[in-house]
Structure formats: structure tokens, C-alpha cells
């Protein structure tokens, strides 16, 4: 009996030692030398793996930071300046302060909802619908409304508005740019948040000639150039029948907003004018998405526009 126990102990012990040796050799041979800094950098990143930086994920971003030993050309949009500062501290390098940005949907819901010109009945994908036709609004440049951007957002910051055009929640948006990449019509742009979260932008990308664009959508930019003329900062350019406000030059004076004949230019974050009545649309409860939008009408305008 004792002998049997002894044999078992010896055999198992020998096996244990043998495996330990093998494991040690293998571990030595296939050792991956990795800078411990990568782990530390990865630790301070948000870990959402949103891909907004252009890398495959947060760890890939950390590797890139450590390998070039600076933050040049690398920016974690969701983390913002706070994360950049932490990484800079770990790497011991300087950090550029970037303006905080936010995604902006440059399309007016003027033609959606009840004003649809056709009924799209196929796969709920903007990328696919874009290959079929102009979309329900009839605008070949406008929002298709299937929500590819909503599906792409990792931060729950973009939702379909009740008019079929997505609405960005500026508080949640980290400007990772995933929605902008997902949009087949390149409607979504990353713009500076602006002082006090106030910003002005042209909410249209329709390149059709003025008359054609106006026929398509009442709020289309017709490229008339009136905005460019009133702009004191020369921040507005008109190219290909559509005007564009350079957010780096814009001082949010809102002269262009009042000038625009089609109300294509939107201002966000400014206190709502007192005179502006907020007529509650009678059919609002009928809209199926209404329950998701819990913000009262007046506030919602601020968030979205």
C-alpha cells in the first residue's frame, strides 16, 4: 500500500517537474517583449474600441503612441484633452491642446416625415439605399434615414429624430467620427464645439443648382452666396452650389443665419428668442419615434440643430 502511494507520488512529481521545465523553456523561447508602457497607456484610454482614432482599437492606439513616443497625429477623441494629458505624462512628451469637437448632421428634415416623395421598402441600410436611388426625400445628397450612423455610434449619442434625420446628443458625442464614416452621403461632419457650445453651420450639402435644389427641398442651400457677403470673418466659401462655414474662422455672429433665404444655416446653443412661439405639432403623438425623444420641443432644437 505504501509502495503504491509512493509510486504515485513519484510519478506525478516527476511529471510535474518535467512539465515545469518544458513550460519554462517554451516561455523563454517564445517570450514576447512588450513595453510595459503600452499597458499603462491602454489603461488610461476609454476602452470603447470605437476606432475613431483610425487604429484597430484602444490597444493598437496605445502601441502607436508608445512606438512613436509622442502624441503627434494621434488623438483619442472620446478621451479628449484629459486622456491626452495623462498619456503625455506617461510618455513624458508635450501635448497639443485640441478644440473639443462634436458631430453635426448637415441635413434639414424639411422633406422627410410626411413630405416623403416615395416609400422605401428595401433593406434598412443607408449604404444600400444609396445604391438604389435618391431616397425618400427625393434629394440626391440628403439623409436617407435608415440610421447607419445610429448603428455605428458606440456612445449612444446619435438617434433618429422624428423627422427621419438623425439627432446628435452633444453631451454624449465624443467626436470619434464613426457616424461620419458610416454615412454614405458624407452628411455628418466633425466641427468644433465652439465657445459656450455655440456654433453655426450650413445644414445642407446639396450640390444641385439653386433652382433644382429648391425644388427638391425648401431648406436646401442654393449657393446664392449671400452668407459669404455678410460674413465679417470671410469664413464662408461657396463651392459647387453649396456654401460652407469654416469653423476655425467663424465667430458665431449669426449674421449669415438671418441672411440665408432658405434657412439652410443653423445656429446651435444660442438662447431661444423669446418671441419664437413653440407650436406643438398636432400630429406629434402619432409619430412612432416620439416616445424616444423625451426632451421638450424647445430644448430639443438646441441639442439637435
Amino acid at each position: 500500500m505504501t509502495q503504491q502511494i509512493l509510486i504515485a507520488v513519484i510519478v506525478l512529481g516527476a511529471l510535474g517537474i518535467l512539465f515545469a521545465v518544458v513550460l519554462y523553456i517554451v516561455a523563454q523561447k517564445f517570450k514576447v517583449v512588450e513595453d510595459p508602457l503600452i499597458d499603462e497607456v491602454a489603461e488610461v484610454l476609454p476602452g470603447a474600441n470605437c476606432g475613431g482614432c483610425g487604429k484597430a482599437g484602444c490597444r493598437a492606439f496605445a502601441e502607436a503612441c508608445v512606438s512613436q513616443h509622442s502624441l503627434e497625429g494621434l488623438r483619442c477623441a472620446p478621451g479628449g484633452d484629459a486622456v491626452a494629458a495623462k498619456i503625455a505624462e506617461l510618455l513624458g512628451c508635450a501635448v497639443e491642446q485640441g478644440e473639443p469637437q462634436v458631430a453635426v448632421v448637415r441635413c434639414n428634415p424639411a422633406n422627410c416625415g410626411d413630405k416623403r416623395k416615395s416609400n422605401y421598402d428595401g433593406l434598412r441600410s443607408c449604404a444600400f439605399q444609396n445604391t438604389v436611388y435618391t431616397g425618400e426625400s427625393g434629394c440626391p445628397f440628403g439623409c436617407l434615414g435608415c440610421g447607419d450612423c445610429v448603428a455605428a455610434c458606440q456612445f449612444d449619442a446619435i438617434h433618429m429624430g422624428e423627422n427621419g434625420v438623425p439627432v446628435v446628443d452633444a453631451d454624449k458625442c465624443t467626436a470619434c467620427g464613426a457616424c461620419a464614416k458610416a454615412c454614405p452621403r458624407r452628411i455628418i461632419e466633425l466641427r468644433n464645439k465652439g465657445k459656450k457650445d455655440r456654433r453655426v453651420y450650413v445644414s445642407c450639402v446639396n450640390k444641385e443648382k439653386g433652382a433644382v435644389a429648391m425644388k427638391t427641398c425648401a431648406n436646401a442651400c442654393i449657393g446664392c452666396g449671400k452668407c459669404a457677403k455678410v460674413c465679417p470673418m470671410e469664413a464662408i466659401t461657396v463651392e459647387g452650389n453649396v456654401s460652407y462655414i469654416d469653423y476655425k474662422k467663424c465667430i458665431a455672429c449669426r449674421k449669415c443665419v438671418t441672411e440665408c433665404p432658405t434657412k439652410a444655416i443653423k445656429d446651435v446653443g444660442f438662447p431661444a428668442p423669446a418671441v419664437k412661439p413653440a407650436p406643438k405639432p398636432a400630429e406629434a403623438p402619432a409619430a412612432p419615434v416620439a416616445e424616444k425623444v423625451e426632451i421638450p420641443v424647445a430644448e430639443k432644437v438646441e441639442v439637435k440643430n
Binding site: 416615395s118 416609400n119 422605401y120 421598402d121 428595401g122 433593406l123
Partner: peptide, 9 residues
């Protein structure tokens, strides 16, 4: 006439 339906084939 209601709106025309559009879809892929």
C-alpha cells in the same frame, strides 16, 4: 395614388 414603393429587386 399613394406614394410609389421603391426597393431593390
Amino acid at each position: 395614388m399613394s406614394l410609389l414603393n421603391i426597393s431593390g429587386s
